[in-house]
């Protein structure tokens, strides 16, 4: 009897001890604990360039621009150099006027904010390949676009800088085209126009031969996606007359194929994105023609 009583008391004691221990574990999970000051320090001071980027690109279009050296954003096997400070804003201002704003007018605010690449990385030097060719721009996953050779952009020399801007716009339209077709695929009929003409040795094809085969640039012979976006980029970086003149450099058979591709691209822009590509083409050309680079850079 006494033994049973002691045993009963012990059992209760153990239960209490167990419950107390259990309770302490809940105390440990108390989420009201003050974790103290964060040890991650973010330097949010902005210089003039940072502030312009924030006000005009980040806040408005959700674009981040990296212009300071950050090798984690670049190819490890290449020697590259950062842009000079005095090149960054002049280039970004002209790019905004000649790329983002015309697209915003024709595609709408939501369109441009949704699909524009979210990270623009600027590099000052050339990106040279072992074979002596140069990479003018690269894009990663529809999110990041890298622009090279910025240190050669000098608004004081309008003609050469406009030619440079045109090359960079080609890159931007090219990469933006990838984002668009990765969002809504272009019609299958585009794939069939020059189905047998693709090659990984596109660099060995001359511009004239490419045109005669129905490809707008030698690079467009790489694959169908590149073909599609090169067509977009060539339309949007030339006036209609200039585009027609490019086509005339190829054979009549090539011209016919290129016109078919142009029609598919124009319909794709109209049907999917409700953008008249010819009106966009005209506006971009007008902006570039009328733009005083020095004046824009100084704004």
């Amino acid at each position: 009897m006494v033994y049973n009583l002691i045993k009963e008391i012990d059992m209760k004691l153990y239960k209490y001890i167990f419950l107390i221990l259990l309770a302490t574990t809940f105390v440990a999970c108390d989420d009201e604990e003050d974790l103290g000051k964060s040890n991650i320090v973010i330097d949010d001071t902005k210089n003039e360039i940072d502030q312009w980027i924030y006000d005009n690109l980040t806040k408005t279009y959700n674009i981040e621009v990296k212009y300071e050296w950050d090798d984690t954003e670049l190819e490890n096997d290449k020697v590259l150099a950062a842009p000079a400070l005095d090149k960054v804003l002049p280039f970004l201002k002209t790019l905004k006027k000649s790329w983002i704003e015309p697209y915003e007018i024709h595609g709408g605010e939501t369109f441009i904010r949704t699909y524009i690449p979210k990270l623009l990385v600027l590099v000052g030097s050339r990106n040279m390949n072992d074979d002596g060719t140069m990479v003018q721009g690269t894009a990663v996953g529809g999110r990041k676009v890298v622009i090279y050779q910025l240190n050669e952009f000098d608004p004081e020399y309008q003609n050469s800088s406009k030619a440079f801007l045109k090359r960079m716009l080609h890159v931007m339209h090219h990469e933006f085209g990838h984002i668009l077709h990765q969002t809504v695929m272009y019609p299958d009929e585009f794939k069939l126009v020059t189905a047998g003409g693709y090659t990984s040795a596109w660099m060995n094809v001359s511009e004239t031969d490419a045109l005669s085969e129905g490809f707008i640039t030698p690079y467009s012979k790489l694959d169908v996606d590149e073909n599609f976006v090169e067509t977009i980029a060539t339309i949007l970086t030339n006036s209609k007359d200039q585009y027609d003149a490019i086509l005339l450099r190829g054979s009549s058979a090539g011209q016919k194929l290129l016109r078919t591709k142009e029609e598919i691209v124009a319909n794709y822009f109209q049907d999917v994105w409700h953008i008249d590509i010819y009106a966009l083409q005209a506006d971009i050309y007008k902006v570039i023609q009328e733009m005083d680079l020095e004046e824009v850079a100084g704004e």
């Binding site: 050296w69 950062a82 400070l85 030097s125 050339r126 040279m128």
Partner: peptide, 27 residues
Amino acid sequence: AFTTFSQMNYFSNPNNSGGTGLGGDVE
């Protein structure tokens, strides 16, 4: 790190060396 282009980049600039650089560092 010198994070924008300057005279410190002379030996790490691919433009003056056929793309290879001249052994310079900015970091």
